[in-house]
């Protein structure tokens, strides 16, 4: 089935098998491998992207459902060669170790901040409940999101 999707600002048209998950479409068809797969039960959040501005687990969506949508992946977050404040926050606060959950964690955090500009630690912890990290114990992820919220004028 033919679909047209705007991904990181560029319109892409492709013929896809209806059963192809959006995450596989991004990774295998378009080479956008920054979006990861970490589980098969929609728990881990490694595959989080933005669909029409909302955080989505792209493993729980068929590519055909995204027809006509605008998608942002981790590759599209940095603008004009400069890192997004959330990316800077993760770097400065050591919010990542192995890095595998990081793209999804950053995308979820950016979406979360859109709805909670002035988050408390508890808000952040609740807001990121859909993203698993096995390395950091979340301590520095929380610090990174807090730092980003302050940098973004929260």
């Amino acid at each position: 089935m033919k679909i047209s999707v705007k991904i990181n600002g560029k319109t892409v048209e492709r013929d896809v098998d209806p059963r192809m998950l959006l995450v596989h479409f991004l990774r295998d068809e378009l080479g956008l491998t920054g979006t990861k797969v970490g589980c098969d039960t929609s728990q881990c959040g490694s595959c989080t992207v933005h669909l029409n501005g909302e955080a989505l687990k792209s493993c729980t969506f068929f590519a055909v459902q995204a027809d006509g949508a605008e998608i942002t992946t981790i590759e599209g977050l940095a603008a004009n060669g400069s890192l997004h404040p959330m990316q800077e926050g993760f770097w400065e606060k050591h919010g990542l170790q192995c890095g595998y959950c990081t793209p999804g964690m950053i995308m979820a955090s950016v979406a979360f901040l859109k709805k909670h500009a002035h988050p408390t630690e508890e808000d952040i912890r609740h807001g990121l409940e859909g993203n698993l990290c096995r390395c950091t114990g979340y301590h520095n992820i929380v610090a990174a999101v807090k730092a980003a919220s302050e940098k973004m004028g929260g």
């Binding site: 491998t33 890192l83 770097w91 990542l96 890095g99 595998y100 990081t102 793209p103």
Partner: peptide, 17 residues
């Protein structure tokens, strides 16, 4: 700050899959 992070926070790093 870690030298390995720029490729990890931008999605550039290549893992096995």
């Amino acid at each position: 700050k870690r030298k390995e992070d720029p490729r990890l926070i931008t999605g550039e790093a290549k893992y096995l899959d």
